[in-house]
């Protein structure tokens, strides 16, 4: 009888531990989703600003064409091509910023300021996303989580290549 109670006790502790692990993993998956949603939103806004800049006087016709193309690509890219498209847009914007240091038009200054602000936020958002992904990957490697398939059918989260770029 005592043995039975003891076994029951340990079993419930173990069940509690598994439920704890599952909650923990679920929370991490949620964090990955929200941090990606945040980053995605900021990237969309950056593409929109890029198109605005392309239409303005800041960029010469050639740069405008390049920028519009890169921005549209970033907006319409599928998940697989997203990374390359964002890298392209980062590059196009980088060239533009370098060449447009002295604009006087207040509207254009505002656009550039908004771009600068967005770039800073994107850096933070990337850091948050990368952190949550690496943390989730680490926890998913735990023995009990693999053994009891606590990750369920949730796909393994990944970071994108463009996130390693230095802005």
């Amino acid at each position: 009888m005592n043995n039975f109670l003891l076994a029951f006790f340990f079993l419930s502790i173990f069940a509690w531990y598994l439920s704890f692990l599952a909650t923990r993993l679920n929370r991490l998956h949620h964090r990955v989703e929200t941090s990606w949603a945040n980053l995605d939103g900021l990237l969309q806004r950056r593409a929109a600003v890029a198109i605005e800049i392309a239409r303005s006087e800041i960029s010469d016709p050639a740069a405008s064409l390049l920028l519009t193309f890169a921005a549209h690509q970033a907006r319409e890219a599928t998940v697989r091509d997203r990374s390359q498209a964002e890298t392209g847009l980062t590059g196009a914007l980088g060239i533009l910023i370098e060449n447009s240091a002295d604009t006087q038009n207040p509207l254009e200054q505002e656009l550039l300021l908004e771009l600068k602000d967005l770039t800073a936020k994107i850096k933070v958002a990337i850091a948050m996303h990368v952190e949550s992904v690496t943390r989730t990957q680490m926890v998913r490697k735990k023995l009990f989580i693999r053994l009891f398939r606590l990750a369920g059918s949730a796909p393994e989260p990944v970071t994108y290549e463009f996130e390693g770029d230095v802005f």
């Binding site: 989703e33 929200t34 941090s35 939103g41 933070v124």
Partner: peptide, 10 residues
């Protein structure tokens, strides 16, 4: 506050 905003997405 920007960090707060990013944490509050959702």
């Amino acid at each position: 506050y920007d960090v707060y905003e990013m944490a509050m997405v959702g």
